[in-house]
Amino acid sequence: MLCEECQKRQATLHFTKIINGQKNEMHLCEECAKDKGETFPNWNSYSIQDLLSGLLHFEQPKNGVRSSSKAPTPLVCNNCGLSYDRFTEIGKFGCSECYRTFSTKLDPIFRRVHGGNTRHAGKIPRREGGKIEVKRKIEELRTQLRRHVESEEFEEAARLRDEIRHLEFNMQDGEGE
């Protein structure tokens, strides 16, 4: 195989790079690889910004499906004023509220950037920790509740309903402090 860069020498170095699940291959001769800065550093560091911005544009809906007469209202963050369009241009959020404002559009982006993941599985800040644990517990109980209703185990379902109410009441209480 000939080198991709110079098309002259034999390609002796073969690279596979996986970016967000997409496979890229490169075949270079040693000299060209050296020109590229020992090959790998450049290979890895080519602007993550370019990559991201390309990706974000890619994710924008190509509004061909619904030919509505009204132009869709542009998505803009109430807190910082950043629009979704601008977000896709700069590849950066403007504030923490942007995450909520653009939330419906973020899963595909995160999936690509973080190897298919969309959900945090790490640390929870200490102060918020208790509240979030209760929320997770309520979520879990709700799923159980649905299962019991489906299988018509109403006694158990009622017990779970009361437990959920109790937890929710306590949580609201806590917030009022």
């Binding site: 959020f93 923490s96 995450y99 909520r100 973020l106 945090h120 790490g122």
Partner: peptide, 12 residues
Amino acid sequence: FDEYRGYLTSCP
């Protein structure tokens, strides 16, 4: 912080 997304940062 968002319980679903984790620590919210400027860059995705």
